[in-house]
Amino acid sequence: MIVRLASFLGLAIVLVPLWVMPGVLFPHPGVNDALELSALGPLLYLLTLGASLLSLLGVGLLG
């Protein structure tokens, strides 16, 4: 129970800065500001998908 509570608290601690991050970093965003981020997002997504597939390998080896 404590582990679950701590994990949900930890998640909330991560989500709040994530929500306010765009407004803090780019208070008045222009159309072409920080264009490199438009490529970094999908790249991070591809890494997430790759790690997801690797989790199956983990279950196969450790399960």
């Binding site: 765009p22 965003p29 981020l37 438009s38 970094l40 997002g41 999908p42 997504y45």
Partner: peptide, 19 residues
């Protein structure tokens, strides 16, 4: 359409998936 170009959405996807 503006910075950070949904980078926060992809970060959220990574965090939520890991959780």
């Amino acid at each position: 359409l503006q910075a950070p170009y949904a980078f926060d959405v992809y970060l959220l996807i990574a965090v939520a998936g890991a959780t």
